[in-house]
Amino acid sequence: MKIGNVGAFSLALVLAALPAVVLAAGNAENGKKIVETKSLGNCVACHVIPNMEFPGDVGPDLVQSMQGFTEKDRGTVWQWVWDARVFDPDTIMPPFGPNKFMTKKDVDDVVEYLYSFKKNK
């Protein structure tokens, strides 16, 4: 398997693409729906999300995680949701973008919703 090369290659692509995605503004309400719905993002299967019962604990608490991201990090957060393999090649997070769970617009919306978790915006 040549995962290694592909990973490094897409990393380069991502770095080139960051400024473009940083500017996108999403619809937080649609993002919330994706994050909470089993057949869509189902992020709550693995992450703590506000006001959702029985969240999983496979991934970090996203309310806490979001406190550490600044406005400048929107591109990074976007990439985590689109394809987390760039940060951790052995991640359990499904590649939501490449495997066609979500469109780019959907990811914009999810990121918008995630930013609403920030306590001191």
Partner: peptide, 8 residues
Amino acid sequence: KYAGHMIR
């Protein structure tokens, strides 16, 4: 790897 964690 994640045995023992909760998935939902």
